[in-house]
């Protein structure tokens, strides 16, 4: 059986598990390095990235996430998860896990008053089709300095908000808080439930 692990240190991990369940994908919360490594795919959810870093310190969880990504299993990151996955982080500055060749700029749209539901129309049609994609942005980061192998799959006002690099799909918004299954389906396209 193929089981996707949802990193459940803090954040909207339950919303991710519920969204995957609607797609027929088995997902379970993972909190330890062993649980992360035992997963056949990973979700790095939304939440507070500073809290997640603190909870990963000295536990081996960060290294386990990198191992799962390097062995080629699908990784789906949203919002704070994208911050964790990025090579560099700004606001404040630090290194990320380096799964995504990009710099994540935290809180780049502003505070909660700048959070919004946006209909994205600037989409990669081969990956997502033509229908507009409803995107929930909550204190979202922006992506900068994209590496040459990073494909941009959706833009908001010209800026990348959904990208793919190999087995990693990263959304600065929250597909798990919308009914549209296209982004998660893209991230776990190789999963038996979705093939």
């Amino acid at each position: 059986m193929t089981v996707v692990g949802v990193l459940a240190l803090q954040g909207d991990f339950e919303a991710h598990a519920a969204a995957l369940a609607r797609l027929g994908v088995d997902a379970r919360p993972v909190r330890t390095a062993a649980e992360v490594r035992a997963s056949d795919g990973l979700v790095l959810p939304g939440g507070e990235s500073t809290t997640m870093w603190k909870l990963m310190e000295g536990t081996g969880v960060a290294e386990a996430i990198v191992d799962v990504a390097r062995r080629g299993d699908p990784v789906f990151a949203t919002c704070a998860g994208v911050i964790l996955a990025s090579r560099r982080i700004e606001g404040p500055s630090r290194d990320g896990l380096g799964l995504l060749a990009a710099t994540a700029v935290r809180n780049a749209y502003g505070r909660q008053l700048d959070s919004a539901v946006v209909s994205l129309t600037d989409l990669d049609r081969d990956a997502l089709g033509a229908a507009p994609l409803e995107a929930v942005f909550i204190r979202a980061p922006k992506l900068a300095d994209l590496g040459p192998n990073v494909e941009v799959l959706a833009r908001r006002d010209g800026e990348p908000v959904l990208v793919r690099e190999g087995n990693l799909v990263a959304a600065t918004f929250h597909p798990e808080l919308a009914a549209d299954p296209r982004v998660a389906a893209l991230a776990f396209a190789a999963h038996p439930a979705l093939r």
Partner: peptide
């Protein structure tokens, strides 16, 4: 409404914390 969804969305992000 989208306004309320965005509010609850932030509350979702604070879960487990």
């Amino acid at each position: 409404s989208d306004a309320f969804r965005v509010k609850v969305g932030l509350a979702e992000m604070l879960k487990g914390g």
